[in-house]
């Protein structure tokens, strides 16, 4: 609040044309604005501090690499990597292909409207419904059971709209003159796309991949219904995708409600810390890439 002191300079200010009476409602509203911004930031700091202070002490190399069946973290980390890998390997080509079609081939018309509508719809459907759908289709109908591959297939649907949207934005920023130049030199459309448009949009596409990595890592509801609860180390590299295996987020969920494991809370805090750090790193990476991409 601005106090009006009767000093010499202040009096002069009050006389001037531009001075304004301080309205009480203005002060209150301004306080409210500051208060809500402070609330948002304060909550963020509270969350981060609470989890990292409680969790950082537990993280050690031994803890991360223990492969004991009930509380070892290594199998869980491996499962998470499996899910990331097998989801992205399918989702990225499909997403980029769709974005190329939407930006380079057809820009208007009924079909494009339909595609836009359906990507937006997909983006709005909550992951529990994807989980339900994935459970009914991949686990039951396809007979895959609760397995990592069923989780991956479900997750592809979850991350697809995000990848399409970000890649589309990246492709749209490539100047038209580049494309026209290539076309004028006699390159075909396909060649122009692969040799001019895509290389120019690489940072943007990488950003979309990083966002998808973060999304998969943080996902839990879709996995809850599809991926099962396995905590075993993989016996074989490939056949592991047909066995059930929980991811880090699911492990955190199961541990938080599990009283029988002695160090459950310890593990929860440790996983939460790991997840927070990874999300932070991914965010910074995406930021850096986006900066490179704008200039």
């Amino acid at each position: 609040m601005q106090q009006i002191d009767k000093t010499e300079s202040d009096v002069r200010k009050n006389i001037s044309l531009y001075s304004k009476r301080v309205r009480k409602s203005d002060v209150v509203l301004k306080m409210l604005i500051y208060f809500s911004a402070l609330l948002t930031v304060g909550f963020f700091i509270l969350l981060i501090a609470y989890i990292i202070v409680n969790g950082a002490g537990y993280i050690s190399l031994d803890f991360l690499l223990s492969s004991a069946e009930s509380d070892g973290l290594l199998p869980i980390i491996i499962n998470t990597l499996y899910v990331e890998f097998f989801t992205l390997i399918f989702a990225i080509p499909i997403g980029i292909g769709a974005a190329i079609y939407l930006t380079q081939y057809v820009k208007q018309g009924k079909f494009v409207k339909l595609i836009r509508f359906s990507t937006e719809t997909l983006a709005g459907i909550p992951s529990i419904l994807f989980g339900l759908f994935g459970y009914a289709i991949f686990c039951v109908l396809f007979g895959l059971g609760s397995s990592i591959i069923a989780g991956c297939l479900t997750m592809i649907i979850c991350v697809l709209p995000g990848i399409i949207r970000t890649t589309e934005e990246a492709l749209l920023t490539v100047p038209n003159s580049y494309k026209n130049g290539a076309l004028a030199l006699g390159a075909g459309k396909f060649r122009t796309i692969f040799e001019i448009v895509l290389p120019c949009a690489v940072p943007g596409i990488l950003t979309s991949v990083i966002l998808a990595v973060g999304r998969i890592m943080g996902e839990s509801a879709a996995f809850l219904l599809t991926i099962g609860t396995g905590t075993k180390m993989p016996k074989e590299v490939f056949s592991h995708i047909f066995s059930s295996g929980r991811t880090l987020t699911l492990h955190l969920y199961y541990m938080s409600g599990n009283g029988s494991v002695p160090d459950a809370m310890k593990i929860c805090f440790a996983i939460a810390t790991i997840l927070l750090i990874l999300i932070f790193v991914l965010n910074v990476l995406a930021k850096l890439l986006a900066k490179k991409f704008i200039h």
Binding site: T40, I51, G214, G218, S220, T249, S256, A272, L276, I279
Partner: peptide, 22 residues
């Protein structure tokens, strides 16, 4: 402040749940 908002959007829902629980 802006990166904080972005980070809040990226934090997995399980962590929010865990925080709420604790």
């Amino acid at each position: 402040v802006r990166p904080i908002v972005e980070l809040l959007a990226g934090i997995p829902s399980v962590i929010y749940g865990f925080f709420g629980m604790m």
